[in-house]
Amino acid sequence: MFGGLRDEHGVPVTLTMGEITTDLSSITIRPAAGLGGKTWLSRRPAYVSDYGTSPEITHEYDRQILGERVTFLAVVPIVVREDVRGLLYAGTRGEAELSPEALEALVAESRRVAGELEIRDEVDRRVGLRDAQAVAGPETAERQRFRDAFAEMRIIARETTDPATRARIEALLDPSTGAVILTERQLDVMGLVAMGCRNAEIADRLGLGRETVKSYLRSAMARLGARSRHEAVTNARRAGLLP
């Protein structure tokens, strides 16, 4: 077994069990690369019965995996709110395949880890809100509920599969009366900045690299005419882009 959680470079293998070499820890899985990369894009478990000859996947990691004499290989994504946060692998050597019970256990473990990550995200969100309030000073509970509702509406608009619902919510969120226009990603980043999140936390939540977050933040600050994060949030609220 082996796997890991996603960082800004991909999914590095940080957990190994039953290995016979040290090469697995040199792997960093990227989208579309190998069985794990295929699973990353589909967000669904997958397996191959003969890893070395499978035509269904690319073979960037053959040296490390075949060095373990792996034949049957299964991988399950760790998914939090439709976002792949890590990958768990289980393989066998020789002709044996994983039993259905073992595959179910692998899926159950991925769900357990996903649940823990979701709890951690919520804790981080609340700590960020607390820290932001400490900097900005006290505000009414009504104002905070309004900001939470605004953030939730943005999430619903992005995730809904109903075009009519998305259009209605986006119309409510449309800051068309303001002179400043930010892209969707810039608004996502600024919304988390307003919550007090650091760049690393923003990158983790949005599934972006830290440098990408910095780029979005710099461009948003330029459009807002701001020289600091605090000034950018203030200007965005004055422009009606943030509650």
Rank of each mutant, 00 (worst) to 15 (best):
F150E: 13
R158T: 09
N199S: 10
R30N: 07
L129N: 03
E139N: 01
A90G: 11
P243I: 02
R43Y: 03
E152K: 13
A102W: 00
I156Q: 14
S228M: 07
H59D: 04
L98Q: 10
I27G: 06
R198Y: 10
G196C: 04
G94Y: 07
L73M: 12
R147S: 10
T161H: 08
E82R: 15
A114Y: 02
E8Q: 15
I27L: 09
P31Q: 07
R168K: 13
R147G: 03
T161V: 10
T14G: 02
V79W: 05
E97T: 14
S219V: 04
L192R: 14
G10Y: 09
R112K: 11
Y51M: 10
I202H: 03
A232F: 03
R147W: 01
A157I: 00
E152Y: 06
K214G: 02
S219A: 12
G209F: 01
T16A: 14
P31T: 05
E116V: 10
V233H: 05
S215D: 10
G18N: 04
A203E: 08
L129V: 12
R126W: 06
R205T: 07
E139D: 03
E19Q: 15
G3K: 08
R43S: 12
R43C: 07
Y89P: 08
A32V: 05
P31V: 03
T140G: 14
Y51P: 01
G52V: 00
R69A: 08
L35C: 01
R120A: 14
G207L: 03
G178K: 00
I169Y: 04
G94I: 11
G191Q: 09
R218E: 06
M190N: 07
F150L: 06
C197V: 00
H9R: 15
L88D: 11
R205Q: 12
L15F: 14
L98P: 08
G191W: 02
V13M: 08
R223C: 03
C197Q: 13
V113N: 06
K38S: 01
S219D: 12
G207M: 05
V113Q: 08
V80P: 01
G225V: 13
R125Y: 02
D50L: 08
I29V: 15
P45D: 11
A222K: 14
L103D: 02
P175N: 07
L88S: 13
M17D: 12
P163R: 03
S110Q: 05
G94F: 08
V123D: 02
I27W: 07
P12C: 09
G91D: 13
M195C: 01
I181K: 15
I155L: 12
R81Y: 09
H230Q: 14
A164R: 11
N199M: 06
Y47V: 00
V213Q: 13
A167E: 15
A157R: 01
A132F: 07
T177N: 11
H59W: 09
G191F: 04
S99P: 01
D7G: 06
G207W: 09
R237Y: 00
H9L: 11
L73Y: 05
S25E: 14
L88A: 15
Q186D: 07
G34C: 11
R145N: 06
A134T: 11
V193W: 01
R44Y: 00
R218H: 11
D162W: 03
T53K: 10
R237M: 11
A132H: 10
T183C: 05
R168P: 00
N235D: 01
R223I: 09
L106T: 06
V193D: 04
M17W: 12
A167V: 02
T161E: 14
R210H: 11
V84W: 09
